[in-house]
Simulated scan of single mutants.
Amino acid sequence: MQSSITGTAAGVPFTALPPPGDGPAPLIVTWHMLDAPRSDAAFAAALPMDGLPAWRVHLGMPMCGARMVDGSVDAVGELIREDVLMSFLHPFVRQATEELPAALASIRAQLPVEDGPIGVLGGSLGGAVALRVLADTEIPVFAGAVVNAAIRMRSVVELFPGDYPYDAESEKAVDSLDFLADADTIAGRAPLMVVSGELDHPGLRADALRLVDALGPESELLSISGLAHPLAEEPGIEPAPQLPLAREVDSGLTRWFRRHLAP
């Protein structure tokens, strides 16, 4: 991995990987998984996209990495036990999305990035953030990609034990994070690559295939044989050597973003 730059942007920790060469370059912003790799630094190591003529700035999700409470993920586990949707999944995606405009302005003040449209990339729950940026904001985006993403939040809730007790508020919240319903909006915003491990959770895998069908010809499916949900080994907090299957994902993402960067 190239030498990284660490810092904070409007309170959001980041790990930035510079492009080769000098001068301003386009920007790709990413959000990591809550499975391994579960920090911005670890995600940068798993999917560095080396050689791209663009800055790759990996943002930390709430309560992860440098924002962990007492240096552990125990606080996240407590939120999951409290209410997996309303205390954990929904507010995490909402906060990460709402942090982006101020973080983006801070990144542009700190790093020599161009002012044009950005690329967006998210893994797992971070994928929901990237999709929400496309579906619910007006931030210009030249291309996006998601990896084993939370495309339909009901499918994610179903991964946790027990039957979730939906009420009017939680039904509204979970429906606001159903990006199959937003496929037309997303397709009109930017081309999207959907990376899906063939061994990912069946519900998430099915959602990925459905999203590609709904998006139409501007989207692309990259199906990775042998890939389950994580992209790194546990504990997934510190940077670790890139796994072979993550390297395959990384290669596909690099090709995708290179194709859509301006000449």
Rank of each mutant, 00 (worst) to 15 (best):
G127S: 04
V194M: 04
A190F: 04
A105F: 01
L89V: 09
P241E: 08
G116K: 14
R81I: 01
P62T: 05
L215A: 13
E218K: 13
M63H: 15
L261K: 09
L134T: 03
V93F: 04
V73M: 14
S225Q: 13
G226W: 08
L100Q: 02
P241M: 08
A105K: 10
R210Q: 14
I107D: 01
A44D: 09
P13L: 08
E169F: 00
V76K: 12
T185G: 06
L104P: 08
P217K: 11
E78W: 02
I237V: 15
P230I: 07
L209I: 14
A96N: 01
L211M: 10
A42R: 00
V69N: 13
F160N: 10
P19L: 05
V84G: 11
G65Y: 03
A36D: 11
A128T: 05
I80C: 09
A103Q: 00
I118W: 12
A168Q: 11
P13R: 12
I186H: 08
V12T: 15
D70P: 04
A109Y: 03
V249Y: 04
E99H: 12
A41C: 00
H90P: 03
A206L: 09
L104A: 00
P235A: 07
T97R: 05
S219N: 08
Q2E: 15
E198K: 13
V195M: 10
S251V: 11
G119F: 05
T185C: 06
E238M: 14
H32F: 02
L134A: 04
P19I: 03
S155Q: 10
E78A: 12
V57S: 06
L199F: 14
D182K: 15
S223F: 02
M86K: 06
R152D: 10
D115W: 03
S176F: 02
A183V: 02
L215P: 06
F14A: 07
L52G: 05
V195H: 11
G71E: 01
H260A: 07
V146H: 01
S176Q: 00
A206R: 13
G11E: 07
R189V: 10
L100R: 05
L261Q: 08
G123A: 12
L209E: 14
N148R: 00
H229T: 06
S225A: 15
E198P: 07
L211S: 05
A181C: 05
A66V: 08
I118E: 13
G122W: 03
V174Y: 12
I28R: 15
